[in-house]
């Protein structure tokens, strides 16, 4: 059996095209497909067949990586909807949001300079809660609403939160090390 490279990632795994995802079903579908397209499982392949199978395996892994991460999954859904999330072009976020981002970044930097692990862990916790709230809103917007523009704005917000998370984790691991 081979994988149809023209299928979108959701269809590829037999999952509904939604942001809210059954992670266990995704994992199962991935393992099943991966087993099918793994070139080492098939001996006696011509080099052309082997090449195609490699391509299919890459596609399956790329699809899994995209659907597994909420941010990448949301971006992909918007792409399927034909909505430009403006990730590279839209710099005009709500000023209050950007002001808050700046305060967070300041707090992370201060805690890092002061080697204040407690403060960093508290920041990381608050950040996780905030990201959870924003992700829940994104699910409502993508699966329940019909305002992809609002969802695109939420995706952009989530990208800033993700950057903050990485900064906080980097600061923590630098102090732990």
């Amino acid at each position: 059996m081979s994988v149809d490279l023209s299928l979108d990632y959701f269809t590829l795994f037999g999952l509904p095209r939604r942001f809210g995802i059954d992670e266990a079903a995704l994992d199962r579908a991935w393992h099943a497909l991966q087993a099918e397209v793994h070139p080492d499982r098939h001996t006696l392949l011509s080099s052309g067949e082997r090449g195609r199978m490699m391509q299919e395996a890459l596609r399956v892994n790329e699809a899994f990586a995209t659907l597994k991460k909420p941010l990448a999954r949301a971006q992909y859904l918007l792409e399927l909807l034909g909505v430009d999330a403006g990730i590279a072009t839209n710099t005009a976020m709500a000023p209050e949001f950007l002001m808050e981002q700046m305060e967070w970044r300041e707090a992370v930097e201060e805690a890092r300079l002061a080697s204040d692990i407690d403060a960093l862990e508290q920041l990381a916790l608050r950040l996780r809660m905030r990201a959870g709230e924003v992700t829940a809103r994104l699910e409502e917007q993508l699966d329940g609403g019909n305002d992809p523009g609002a969802a695109a704005d939420t995706v952009r917000r989530l990208m800033f939160l993700d950057k903050l998370r990485r900064e906080t984790v980097d600061a923590l691991s630098a102090l732990d090390g």
Binding site: T91, A92, M93, R156, L164
Partner: peptide
């Protein structure tokens, strides 16, 4: 007056 902008792709924030 204050201008706040941000780049989602890299998470940069500028005031």
């Amino acid at each position: 007056a204050t201008g706040m902008v941000g780049a989602p792709a890299c998470g940069d924030v500028m005031k």
